[in-house]
Amino acid sequence: MERAINVELCGKLADSYGGSVTLYIAPCGLPVRELFEAVSSAYPLLEPILASGSVRACVNEVIVPDHAIIHQGDTAALFPPVSGG
């Protein structure tokens, strides 16, 4: 059964839809690369920056590669390039 997760949007990613968006993922999870596609499809204003290759996914407070799997109950976020301090 699919369950909703909130994907937090950091930095300029939050300009269009606010600080988080909702996605539904299956019990088997969702690879990060498919997360990008799902977010782009459901929230098209984010598609250009997600397609740029510069956005990183963060799952449970760890920046993960594109082949990582997001599971139900995980805390997920998308990071645009950092500004630094």
Partner: peptide, 10 residues
């Protein structure tokens, strides 16, 4: 390093 790599959005 902080100016370029610390995880902040400004």
């Amino acid at each position: 390093r902080l100016k370029t790599e610390a995880v902040f959005w400004k």
